[in-house]
Design a protein around this nucleic acid. Sequence first.
DNA 1: CCTACCGATCGGTAGG
DNA 2: CCTACCGATCGGTAGG
Lengths: 196, 196
Amino acid sequence: MARTQAVDFDQRREKITEAAAVLIAKKGFLGASVADISASCNMSKSLIYHYFPAKEDILFEVMWSHVSKLLHLANTVTVYDRTPDDQLIWLARVLMEAYNGAQAQQKILLNEMDNLPAEKRGVIVQAQRDLMAVVDKFVALKSYKLRSQPKLRPPYVMMFFGMLNWTHTWFDRAGPVSETKVADIASDMFLKGLPF
Amino acid sequence: MARTQAVDFDQRREKITEAAAVLIAKKGFLGASVADISASCNMSKSLIYHYFPAKEDILFEVMWSHVSKLLHLANTVTVYDRTPDDQLIWLARVLMEAYNGAQAQQKILLNEMDNLPAEKRGVIVQAQRDLMAVVDKFVALKSYKLRSQPKLRPPYVMMFFGMLNWTHTWFDRAGPVSETKVADIASDMFLKGLPF
DNA sequence: CCTACCGATCGGTAGG
DNA sequence: CCTACCGATCGGTAGG
C-alpha cells in the first residue's frame, strides 16, 4: 500500500519551528546550526530536511506564523465597536501581549529579516505593511493635520511601532511595570505626550 | 633595533573598523568573515590580526567608537543654556543626525550586542545607560507625575529611544521627510502626542 | 606582512 | 515502486 503523508506532519513542522525559534533567538540565524536545531527536537538532521527544503524555509516559517498572528489580532481589535482612541489603546495592549507571549519569534522578526532570500522577505514585509496600515488609518481618522498632509503620516505611524517594538530590548515581564501598563504608556504618549 | 609601533597604527585600525562596520551591517557579524573584511581594505587576513586580537575586538571597536560619540553629543546638547523642551528637541535632532551619518555603526549597535563577550557587552551597555540617564533627567524635571513615581520613568525614557532608534528600520534620507523633521516629530510626540 | 595551513564545523545530500 | 527516515559523509569555508 502506498504510504500517505504522516498524520502528524503539521505537528512535526510546528515542533521544529518552535525549537528553531528558541535557538535562533538565542544565537542568531547563522549562529544556530541545523544540527543544533535537530538536536533540540531529538531528530536527525536529515529528518529536518524532510520537513523543510532549506534552513531559510525554517526561518520563514518562524516569521510568517508570528507576523500573520499579529496581523489577525490587529484586524480583530480594530473591527470592534469602540471609539478610535480605545481601538488604539487595545491595539497596543494586544500587540504587547503577543510580543511577550512569543519573545523569541518577535526578536527574530525584528532582527533576522536580512537572512531571508528576497522573495520570502517580500512576503513578510508586506504583512508588516498591512499591520502598519491599521495604524495609518487611525492616524488619518484622528488628525486633521495628518489627513491633509499624507506624506507626514508614515513617520507618525512608525513612532507608534517604534515605541512598542523597541520594548523587546528592555521590557522585563518580572519587572515593576506590567505589560499592559507599558502598552498604555505607549498609546497615551501617542495620543497625549508626556503626563503632567 | 627594536621596531616601534608604526606611526599610522591608529589610522589603520580606524580603516579596518570602518570597513568592518560596512560589511557587518550588510551581512551580520557571523556572516561577515575576517577574510571579507581584510579583502575590503586590501589587507591580508593575518594583518587584521596584527591590529586586533580577535574578530570580537573589531566588533567592540565599531560599537564603542560610535556609542561614545553619541554620549558626547548628548552631554554637549544638554549643557547649553536652553529651556528643557529645547534641550530635548535638540537632543532628538543631534541623535538623528549622528544615526544617519553612521548608519552602519548604528545598525550594528542595535543588532549585534549578543555577539560581544559579556565583559565587553557590559561596557557598551553602560554607555547606553548613561545616554538614557540624560533623558531620564529631563523626564523627572518635566513631569510631576514621573518625579513622584520614579518606577514609571524608565518606560517613558524608552519610548523616546524607541521612536528614535526604530527609525533605522524605515527612515530614508532620500525620502519625502527630512531627518530633522523626523526628529522633531519624535520630540513633539514625546511632549504633546499626535497633532490636531 | 605573506602563504600555507590547522581542527572544527557549516548547510545540504548521498546510498539504501 | 512509493514515502519516510537513518547513519555517514560530501565539498567548502570558518576563525585563528
